[in-house]
Simulated scan of single mutants.
Amino acid sequence: MSNSENKVASYAIIGFGKIGRALARAFARNGIEVSIATTRDPESFVSDAAAIGPEIIPVTLAEAVKADVIFLAVHFESHPDVAKALPNWQGKTIVDVTNAYGVPPEKMEGLPSARFVAQAFAGGKLVKGFNHLVAAILEQDPSVHGGRRVVFLASDDDGAAAEIATLAENLGFAPVKLGGLSEGGLLVQAHGNTWGKLIFQDLIKFKS
Rank of each mutant, 00 (worst) to 15 (best):
Q140K: 12
P104V: 06
S143V: 12
D41A: 10
V150I: 15
P80E: 14
F121E: 05
G110R: 06
G147P: 11
E43R: 11
V82G: 02
A120W: 12
P105I: 06
H79I: 04
P112R: 00
V134C: 08
N30I: 03
A100T: 08
A73W: 03
V97G: 01
F116P: 05
S113I: 03
F121Q: 02
F121R: 02
K92N: 06
F76R: 07
G129Q: 00
D81I: 13
V97L: 14
E77W: 05
H79Y: 14
A100S: 15
P112H: 01
A62W: 00
N88R: 06
F130A: 04
I70Q: 01
G91M: 06
S44C: 05
A64V: 05
A114G: 07
D81V: 14
D81S: 13
V46P: 08
I137Y: 01
T60H: 02
G129D: 00
P58C: 13
P142S: 01
Q90T: 11
I94P: 02
E77V: 13
D41C: 06
A136N: 09
I56H: 15
A28Y: 07
A62P: 00
Q90M: 07
V82I: 15
G124E: 05
F130R: 01
G110A: 09
F152P: 00
P105L: 01
A73H: 06
G124L: 12
P54Y: 01
P80Y: 15
D41P: 06
I137F: 03
I57E: 13
D48F: 10
P142V: 02
D96K: 03
M108T: 08
G147S: 12
